[in-house]
């Protein structure tokens, strides 16, 4: 067996392993897992399985220093260029590895409880949140989380302590969809409580006025926070298939306000998709102008796609 054959076999083996892992990242399969930690491990491990080399590894933003390699350090961080020049092994350390705080802000309002399939928007947000928290934990970053609906429901301050991950996961586990949404008031409150610069990952369906949201997010950015918006929408909200299949007028009930709206099939088929698309576009435009990462999430979408898109967005921002 020559080298080229072995290389081909190896690539084939990694590809099939990646396909199997990708299957496991389907939201409906992840929903069957009992704990968020297991979900997070599955996503993270599955996402990186088969990757030869990830250009997106790590969240930290700024190079801090070189450090002599010691036993126990991850050999993947060895700067081989320096080794080539100096014949000594150093590892590259970023600033964030030691003091970057990751804030996960999750909308747990009633609208997030909507589901047209097996996974609600809130549950999908929990998956993303757990995955990011797990990833940050592996990166030894400080991670914290804040849940809100019409007020701040619960908060875990960012910390590098290993238990913080489990506190975050436990908080997510026990949280159910609440009542109405006051996203701007909640952001104002969060802004006042965050003292340390860091990453803010916000997961919501963003049923709010874009301009007001922009003003509040800009305040966070002015405080030195890097913001990423995970816009989570259900497949039924993007493409109301079940309603479109209906041949008669329907009455739709707002999960937050309880308002009942009679809509025609024609409206749901033609007008509504245009309106939601315009809203998404407005959010994306706002994020682009303000330098925020914007990640649209469909609850029917595999999580690795979301992660890949997120990291790609971050890379572009750099």
């Amino acid at each position: 067996m020559n080298a080229s054959t072995r290389s081909a076999d190896s690539r084939s083996s990694r590809q099939s392993q990646a396909d199997r892992s990708r299957e496991l990242l389907q939201p409906k399969l992840l929903a069957q897992l009992s704990s968020l930690e297991l979900v997070a491990k599955t996503v993270v491990d599955g996402f990186f399985t088969g990757m030869h080399r990830s250009p997106f590894f790590g969240f930290s933003q700024e190079f801090a220093e070189y450090k002599a390699y010691n036993d126990g350090d991850d050999p993947r961080f060895i700067d081989w260029n320096v080794y080539a020049r100096t014949d000594r092994t150093y590892i590259k350390r970023y600033l964030g590895e030691t003091n970057t705080a990751i804030n996960l802000i999750v909308d747990v309002s009633a609208s997030m409880g909507y589901s047209s399939g097996e996974v609600s928007k809130l549950r999908y947000a929990k998956f993303i949140c757990a995955t990011l928290a797990y990833l940050a934990r592996k990166q030894h970053d400080a991670v914290g989380a804040t849940l809100f609906d019409d007020k701040i429901r619960e908060t875990v301050p960012p910390a590098s302590h290993p238990d913080t991950l489990y506190r975050v996961l436990a908080m997510l586990e026990r949280t159910e969809a609440g009542s109405g949404t006051q996203i701007n008031e909640s952001l104002q409150h969060i802004t006042s409580t965050l003292s340390k610069r860091g990453l803010i990952f916000m997961m919501s369906d963003f049923y709010c006025d874009t301009d007001v949201l922009k003003r509040n997010l800009e305040v966070l950015a002015q405080h030195g926070h890097e913001v990423a918006l995970f816009h989570i929408l259900d497949a039924g909200e993007l493409e109301p298939v079940s309603i479109r299949e209906m041949r008669s007028p329907s009455t739709l009930k707002d999960l937050e306000t309880g308002n009942e709206v009679k809509v025609t099939a024609d409206f749901m088929r033609e007008d509504y998709p245009a309106r939601i698309a315009a809203h998404i576009k407005a959010l994306e435009k706002m994020a682009l102008r303000c330098g925020f990462a914007y990640v649209p999430c469909n609850t029917a979408q595999p999580l690795d796609d979301v992660m890949r898109q997120f990291l790609l967005t971050r890379q572009q921002q750099r």
């Binding site: 609208s111 909507y114 928007k121 049923y207 009455t251 739709l252 999960l255 937050e256 709206v261 809509v263």
Partner: peptide
């Protein structure tokens, strides 16, 4: 009756329908 995430984008079409 059907539950829906938000009526934010349903209001405009509600009257005619």
């Amino acid at each position: 009756l059907q539950d829906f995430g938000s009526s934010m984008f349903l209001q405009a079409g509600e009257t005619t329908s």
